[in-house]
């Protein structure tokens, strides 16, 4: 009976399994193949020599540093917001979460471009500053003041801001999901047992929300470390991250081998960080991910 039953469900899964093998496993095997071959199809480790050049090493370094910085800023900004949203009565909470998600439906190319419009040399922020300086000039004490536009484009701060802005909802949502699932009686118990709000937060809320934090961190870090559009737009093409290198290798240079080697290393890097992260989180974090 049991065998029969499993056979039935296995046959239901067959289409799905075949699909996954052809369109997930096989493509990854292709990446592996191109990583370890040269353009003539001969087996080689030469692509790793390219990866070892100072330029590429530096590129990996910057990508990881920017992505880490963006993830930390996201977490610090998102956690308090998630706490506020989780404390809203359930009826209004869905509206509050919808409002967090809504900007995600503007194509992120456009969102990144509007950031550029804001921070350009003659962008909105500089225009506002200029107008402000113009007003100040009317006051005799400031009449000699001159306005020089602030240069934001190309700074690491702006690229990190771009990452934070584009991926912020990914951090908020899983934390909200976890926080709303915490039994409110636990907080009462903590206060009854002598916790101050701060120690109650540190000892009850924070540990219980760990799985949400872990999935938030992965959901921000993975796209941030592999992005190519944000960096090239907000730096005017001056800064190139790993994603930029991969995109260029595949779509402009047509060098599949180097591109594959880059993405192979990127994948290993992400797998390692996911592994480390998951050791800090609960098993549930997988289910709460989206």
């Amino acid at each position: 009976m049991n065998k029969n039953r499993n056979a039935k469900y296995m046959s239901m899964l067959s289409l799905h399994s075949v699909w996954c093998v052809i369109f997930i496993v096989v493509p990854l095997l292709f990446v592996l193949y191109y990583t370890f071959t040269d353009e003539q199809g001969h087996l080689t480790m030469g692509n790793f020599l390219y990866l070892g050049t100072p330029e590429i090493l530096k590129c990996f370094g910057i990508s990881i540093a920017y992505a880490l910085a963006a993830t930390v800023v996201c977490l610090l900004l998102a956690y308090p917001l998630a706490m506020v949203i989780a404390n809203i009565p359930a009826k209004n909470r869905s509206l509050a979460t919808l409002l967090v998600m809504l900007p995600m439906w503007v194509s992120f190319i456009i969102r990144t471009y509007t950031l550029k419009n804001l921070f350009n040399d003659n962008g909105i922020i500089n225009q506002l500053l200029e107008a402000f300086v113009g007003l100040l000039k009317n006051i005799p004490a400031f009449s000699s003041m001159d306005f020089t536009p602030i240069r934001f484009i190309g700074t690491s701060g702006l690229i990190i801001l771009g990452m934070v802005y584009d991926f912020f909802p990914y951090m908020v949502m899983p934390i909200v999901n976890v926080l709303t699932g915490i039994d409110p009686r636990l907080h009462e118990a903590a206060y009854d047992l002598g916790c101050t709000p701060w120690t109650g937060f540190l000892r009850v809320t924070l540990p219980l929300s760990r799985s949400g934090i872990v999935s938030g961190i992965t959901m921000v870090f993975v796209p941030a470390v592999s992005t190519f559009y944000i960096s090239s737009t907000l730096s005017g093409g001056l800064v190139s991250l790993v994603g930029d290198k991969i995109e260029a290798a595949f779509l402009t240079e047509g060098n599949f081998n180097r591109g594959s080697a880059l993405s192979f290393v990127l994948m290993i890097l992400i797998l390692l960080s996911l592994f480390v992260m998951n050791r800090f989180g609960d098993k549930e974090s997988e289910e709460l991910a989206p």
Binding site: F30, Y34, P223, S263, L266, M267
Partner: peptide, 11 residues
């Protein structure tokens, strides 16, 4: 990352 999903399918 999306970029790896995309390029692996492209291959």
């Amino acid at each position: 990352p999306d970029i790896v999903t995309g390029l692996s399918m492209m291959l």
